[in-house]
């Protein structure tokens, strides 16, 4: 599963939802795999406003990934210096900056293949196997 997905997930136990500690889920004993994909600049720019940046930084550091910048990048920082004299309008394809490539690597290419996702509130562990996270709860926890 992609790290971006963790941006939208929380503990499945109802009573945890109101606790801030239930987000993000913390990866533990994670085996990572890099699955290469094309960079989609427009998507990266438009997903920025939805990212929980501080939490994403926590996840990245827990996984031992390179430290993410303290502040979330600006949209403009994802584009390599624009071509000059192109005037306004569509022009050519914009070129992703190194910041964009790094973000793309973390969000969309870094996948948890095996491991656990742990709720910071109740401690429940959700297993990830063959890249699929299992959020099904035993009957007594539903």
């Amino acid at each position: 599963m992609k790290l971006l997905t963790l941006n939208f997930l929380t503990c499945a136990i109802k009573s945890c939802k109101t606790s801030p500690a239930s987000f993000p889920l913390h990866p533990r004993d994670a085996e990572l795999e890099i699955v290469e994909a094309d960079v989609n600049l427009a998507f990266l720019q438009n997903i920025l406003p939805r990212l929980m940046w501080a939490e994403l930084r926590t996840i990245a550091s827990e996984l031992g990934l390179p430290t993410l910048p303290e502040d979330i990048p600006e949209r403009e920082a994802l584009v390599e210096g624009r071509g000059e004299g192109e005037g306004e309008g569509e022009g050519g394809e914009q070129i992703p900056s190194q910041t964009a490539k790094d973000l793309h690597r973390v969000l969309l290419e870094t996948c948890i293949q095996e491991g656990k996702l742990v709720c910071g509130n109740c401690g429940h562990e959700y297993a990830v196997k063959e890249g699929v996270a299992n959020f099904l709860l035993p009957g007594h926890l539903v």
């Binding site: 599963m1 997905t5 997930l9 929380t10 939802k17 998507f43 969309l108 996270a133 959020f135 099904l136």
Partner: peptide, 21 residues
Amino acid sequence: SRTTFSDVINGDLASSLKPNA
């Protein structure tokens, strides 16, 4: 297509999804 696929989660309905998302 230039859309982005996140994942398919094994779970009960949308119980593991963040509210308002």
